[in-house]
Design a binder for these strands. Sequence first.
DNA 1: GCCAACGTTGGC
DNA 2: GCCAACGTTGGC
Length: 214
Amino acid sequence: MPSGKRTKAMKTETSDKLVVEGGPSDSTKKAQAAKDCGNESSRYWLMKSEPESRMEKGVDVKQFGIEDLKAQPKQTACWDGVRNYQARNFLRAMKVGEEAFFYHSNCKEPGIAGLMKIVKEAYPDHTQFEKGSPHYDPSSKKDNPKWSVVDVQFIRMTKRFIPLAELKVHHQAHKASGGPLENMALFTRQRLSVQPLTKGEFDFVLSLEDKKPS
DNA sequence: GCCAACGTTGGC
DNA sequence: GCCAACGTTGGC
């Protein structure tokens, strides 16, 4: 579920209402999400996706990299396949216009490849109801869907690819003597596929674009 | 391909 | 509600 967003049928025209569906404790979780990333008013995100195809349950699962997003109609896609509650709650907290890093995971060179923005807020993930989808969830009911997606639109590639290894060097240094990447979720919340960044983290990562690879 | 980290499931 | 077994994520 990592990333797993497949290119699929992009339905940008759908008029699904922007209902934020959710269980009873949803507002609590949202509050938690808000707390996790500090300032509620300026939010930044990092979203992981696997750019390379891979075998899953004996089927070749089409993966989705930033080039795939770029190739979509309107360069827009729905971010489906998230199957982790914490990541889902972050999806549900996203607002139109907020920016996110497109992170390539589980590949030769993991790292940040580009920027995208949220263009449609959370609505039910259609793949949870599709038998045969690797993301099918038989326990999810149509009248109370468990999983959500948002629509994202390509903004641009980063001026250069920013490898995980490089971010890690900064994280380690900042951890030792203070700095913006000290608590970056990429390292402190290892397996979270959708995660918030503070403005400080976001700005620092962007500043690396103009620096020589370290 | 290996395996550490960690989320989920299910027996009790 | 505890916790061992199991499955998945994702770097290396």
